[in-house]
């Protein structure tokens, strides 16, 4: 292939409801690499894009939360498979976004793929780990089961544009929630490309919706949105986090605080994630069923 060939640029688009729209506002903003070199124009999402994403996420919630845990695990694993095949693209985008060498960027992408595999395996185990039968003092079978909270707004980490991103999305959807993700404002391109992978991984449209733009501008309507059940403030600074937390109180959203802080990129996203991100957006439902009576009347039935 000739070195002189003019490359084909990619138009980066949002990922909402399984489709790739431009921002409803028609706005874009310039995305540069860590040295300030122009990389692409990304859509600058508006309040209405946020609203559309919530509608898509809500619509997808019934099917996704109702899917079998095994099925969700298969799909999360499929995402890892699809990423593996497009690794080069993500290595390039992560290197540009985070100013990493090619080898370091490759390690980040490998870790992100492995994270999907980790969470793929959790879908059908978390219920056994955090749920179970409770030995109540009476003739009842009492079972606690974790259930997804609903539609979760996820403010992705600002610095870790891909491993951090995957680390906050995967646990939310592994448990059956659907997500509206606000990508890193300065480095949204790996997130927008991830949308293309999700679209080809059997993940139902609307389960993950990805928006790029100014975090505060998109997050504010999401934090106050009455049809959003929870918000992950990972990508918000302390001032924004407090504002959003106040707004989130209007319908008592579950709030995952801005910790672990990724200010200065100090947070090590490659560490063992544990289960707290899985459990942060789970509700516990406890169902009481009568068993037979105690036999006081000679009959337990």
């Amino acid at each position: 292939m000739s070195d002189n060939r003019l490359s084909v640029f990619k138009t980066y688009k949002l990922y909402v409801g399984g489709k790739f729209p431009r921002s409803e506002s028609g706005r874009v903003y310039e995305v540069t690499d860590s040295k300030g070199k122009w990389l692409a124009n990304a859509p600058q999402s508006s309040r209405k894009d946020a609203r559309d994403a919530v509608v898509a996420a809500r619509k997808a919630f019934g099917g996704w939360s109702g899917a079998t845990a095994y099925n969700r695990g298969q799909i999360l694993y499929r995402i890892a498979e699809m990423l593996e095949g497009r690794k080069d693209q993500f290595v390039r985008e992560v290197a540009d976004a985070e100013g990493l060498s090619k080898s370091k960027a490759a390690a980040v992408v490998d870790a992100a793929i492995d994270r999907w595999v980790w969470y793929a395996g959790w879908t059908d185990k978390i219920g056994q780990v955090v749920g179970g039968a409770n030995p109540v003092a009476g003739p009842f079978f009492n079972l606690s089961t974790p259930e997804p909270t609903g539609v979760v707004t996820v403010l992705a980490p600002q610095k870790s544009s891909f491993l951090g991103l995957v680390s906050v999305i995967a646990p939310v959807i592994a448990t059956g929630n659907t997500a509206v993700v606000v990508a890193s404002a300065d480095s949204p391109l790996p997130a927008l490309s991830l949308g293309e992978v999700l679209a080809t991984s059997d993940l139902p449209g609307g389960v993950v919706n990805i928006l790029s733009g100014k975090t505060a501008e998109i997050a504010a309507p999401l934090a106050s949105h009455q049809d959003v059940n929870a918000i992950d403030l990972t990508g918000a600074d302390a001032t924004l986090a407090k504002e959003l937390e106040i707004a989130a109180a209007d319908n008592l959203k579950r709030v995952l605080g801005p910790q672990p802080v990724d200010e200065g990129g100090a947070f090590d996203w490659s560490a063992d994630p544990g289960t707290h991100r899985l459990t942060a957006f789970l509700e516990t439902k406890t169902v009481w069923h009568p068993t037979g009576a105690l036999g006081a009347s000679g009959s337990s039935y």
Binding site: P290, A293, L294, S297, S299, S300
Partner: peptide, 11 residues
């Protein structure tokens, strides 16, 4: 007839 409920009412 739910046995548990019946016996609870009687009790």
């Amino acid at each position: 007839v739910d046995a548990v409920g019946l016996e609870a009412r009687a009790a």
